[in-house]
Design a protein around this nucleic acid. Structure first.
Lengths: 186, 186
DNA sequence: CGATGCATGTAAGCTGTTACATGATTGC
DNA sequence: GCAATCATGTAACAGCTTACATGCATCG
């Protein structure tokens, strides 16, 4: 009823709320762990961001905290409130804007546009290194997909599948680039 | 020889240097335009970021500026220096770290993991909207690919191809998600 | 001669980071 | 009893954004 808390959450706020919803009741520490093992390493999940953020969400009533019984560390168990649930839904549904969909920043692709700054030999070594690392990353996302198969939340599986499919496409593209460069220099 | 300017450039710095290298001599204004029409809308290319950034790069000797003849607006034409070229190469070659490759943040995929917070009807509408927007975005990237075919820089084409391939994979994945949801709810 | 686009810049603020700091718990 | 991990927090800073501000150039 209050006009408060009707703001749209930031990316990190939405993700944190979602993590808590899926694992409640859990500690802020746990949220950081989940963030770090997410398919994207975009979030460093630093203490300096996560703790103040969760405190803020609690202050706004989106989270409720209770002290864990008999924990000298002052462990706080967080759960999502009814208001928090509504905020999470709004955050998800607000995610269909064009500029959000096209906002994916890809450092690898960015660099591709400027590859003529390198010598042919440098380029070849660079692409080879990229392909190797991407293969490693694909293996990581694939093993996460395997694990997600047994998740009680089927959206873990569908989300992980997205990471795999996109990584496969990236790998495919990098191999095409390599082939193209080899063709031209031969 | 100096230890200065041996730092690794930030993402935006690298991209700006690359843009200037490809279009030199050009104005800061032009750099902002190029950033905005890039396949990823990640960079807002705000004046508050671009102008100070380019000033900094000029101060470090990576860029050289000269005033455009007879321009009352104080138009500055920027070019990349030899040092700048070396910095750009270092920036590209430093881009093979695992955490850079896995740092791609995808707001759409993030939300997927939390879709059980929605009702089945909300989910269906949400996914439909996403697919529609992604189709639009694919059309945009495809038309950019067409344009890049005639670019004198073949890496424009290869980079645009990456955007198209990854977007196609995303679209494919979203359609799978939609089909999967329809199957389960039926 | 007025609107739109070109061109440059500043100030305040948001969001996240690194680095530091503290202390309890658990397992060997 | 010591190391690793769990658990929470703060201070300084980095990087980019929005919003504001200015003024010339070009075209109809």
């Amino acid at each position: 009823m209050t006009a408060k808390a009707q703001r749209v959450l930031s990316e990190l706020e939405g993700v944190c709320l979602g993590i808590i919803r899926a694992h409640q009741p859990c500690t802020a520490y746990r949220v950081r762990q989940e963030l770090r093992q997410a398919p994207s390493s975009h979030w460093r999940a630093s203490a300096g961001s996560v703790y103040p953020l969760l405190e803020r969400l609690e202050g706004e009533g989106l989270l409720v905290a209770r002290a864990a019984a008999a924990d000298g560390r002052g462990k706080q168990l967080l759960s999502i409130s009814r208001t928090g649930d509504a905020s999470l839904r709004r955050w998800i549904l607000a995610g269909t804007d064009m500029d959000l969909i096209s906002s994916v920043s890809d450092p690898v692709r960015s660099r591709t546009f400027f590859l003529d700054a390198l010598t042919a030999a440098q380029r070849a070594r660079y692409i080879d290194a990229l392909i190797e690392r991407t293969e490693e990353y694909l293996a990581v996302t694939n093993s996460r997909l395997e694990k997600a198969k047994n998740s009680r939340n089927r959206f873990d599986y569908l989300g992980s599948m997205g990471a795999v499919k996109v990584t496969e496409a990236r790998l495919d593209w990098l191999r095409t680039v390599r082939a193209e460069l080899a063709r031209k220099s031969a």
